[in-house]
Design a protein around this nucleic acid. Structure first.
Lengths: 212, 212
DNA sequence: GTCTATATCTTGATAGAC
DNA sequence: GTCTATCAAGATATAGAC
């Protein structure tokens, strides 16, 4: 606890030790694996196929990620890094947060494979003993807490009605986003995920007295 | 088309031919399989385990359901029958429909294994080539159309604002229900799925001018 | 870092007896 | 209707050479 750099040393060291070529391979593999997981889920994907996708034999792949679970966790870790600053910029302002979520959806609509992979993994992680169970639970909890805090602060501010329950509103928001994503994934051509979220949020803002 | 009894003859005939004992076994198997699917999903469940659950060998089970897919489809068919009159009673009245959905949720909250099985299968069916893909798509489409029709009729009635888009509202409703269910499944002890839906729907009714 | 070869396990499904 | 025996396929993972 004395210094910030004390935690996480192992990871950095490992990364430093790896060669440039090895690092590139790892990236290739992660990308290919995500595409596979997006189609068949984690449990039903064969890492041998991933290996072939990047022109490697199975033991060749296992040199970089010793087990299938390691590969999955590496994908989740990467996502963690990418999304770390997801909520941050919007955290303070409720209106900004809600508008920001629409922007996230708009961006997601352009990366269907990634969204599909994480939606499938998310659902899959409900299954008993799934290796990504804890990760998705933690992530949902943290997201809910962040959103709830913004709602609660808006109540404290007096900018919205004191009756509303931040935790519950956050849960509802997450539910709507997850649900809309699933509808979109089932029929991407016909369902307008972004429009669906916009409609929900603008009605929400109106009912909170924050319209405009 | 001349007589009502003309359709569906094959199924009835098959059912008539089966012995009482065989029918009982089938029911046992379907129930056991659903529990397995609720924990591990379809793809990751071994029908050999299902067989043992009901005290049967694998070939013994395969006598009743020749393939794993047959077993899955039998479960879905059964659900179809059980849910056929799900929307029916409420179809005409929008307020009734929304209140009815809360009731369905209340009932579902008492049957977590069944809900879990169908939520998992629903998510799983997003995967490429999944045998239940068509079933869940059809079901979602039909549900959306039914709900949308009720919204549209309320618009025609003049009981709600003419600006609202029935199809979109129906999609949102389905998204909320699916999303809340997933949050509940991830942490059944702490998350109040019924309360969540009630809150959403009462806010929706208020914004439609139908509160009370 | 990457490969060949192989061990081991699990699964869905079949054949054929009772 | 149920079983034993068996098969073929596909998966993860390891050993050891290059």
């Amino acid at each position: 606890m004395a210094e910030v750099s004390e935690s996480n040393t192992g990871q950095d060291e490992k990364r430093r030790r790896r060669s440039r070529k090895g690092e590139a391979r790892r990236t290739e593999i992660l990308s290919a694996a995500m595409q596979r997981f997006a189609e068949d889920g984690y449990q039903n994907s064969a890492i041998g196929d991933v290996a072939r996708d990047v022109g490697l034999s199975l033991p060749g792949l296992l040199h970089h990620f010793p087990t299938k679970v390691d590969l999955l966790l590496a994908i989740l870790d990467k996502r963690d890094l990418e999304c770390e600053s997801f909520i941050g910029p919007y955290r303070s302002d409720l209106r900004g947060l809600l508008k920001g979520m629409v922007e996230v959806f708009r961006r997601n609509a352009e990366m269907i494979e990634v969204v599909r992979a994480f939606a499938i993994l998310n659902a899959e992680s409900l299954m008993k003993g799934h290796p990504a169970k804890a990760w998705f639970l933690d992530r949902a909890t943290q997201l809910q807490n962040d959103i709830a805090a913004t709602f609660d602060q808006a109540v404290t501010d007096g900018s919205i009605d004191g009756k509303i329950d931040g935790k519950a509103m956050a849960a509802e928001l997450i539910a709507v986003m997850d649900g809309l994503q699933m509808l979109w994934l089932r029929d991407p051509a016909r369902f307008d995920m972004v429009g669906g979220l916009e409609a929900y949020i603008s009605r929400l803002l109106a009912s909170l007295g924050l319209e405009g």
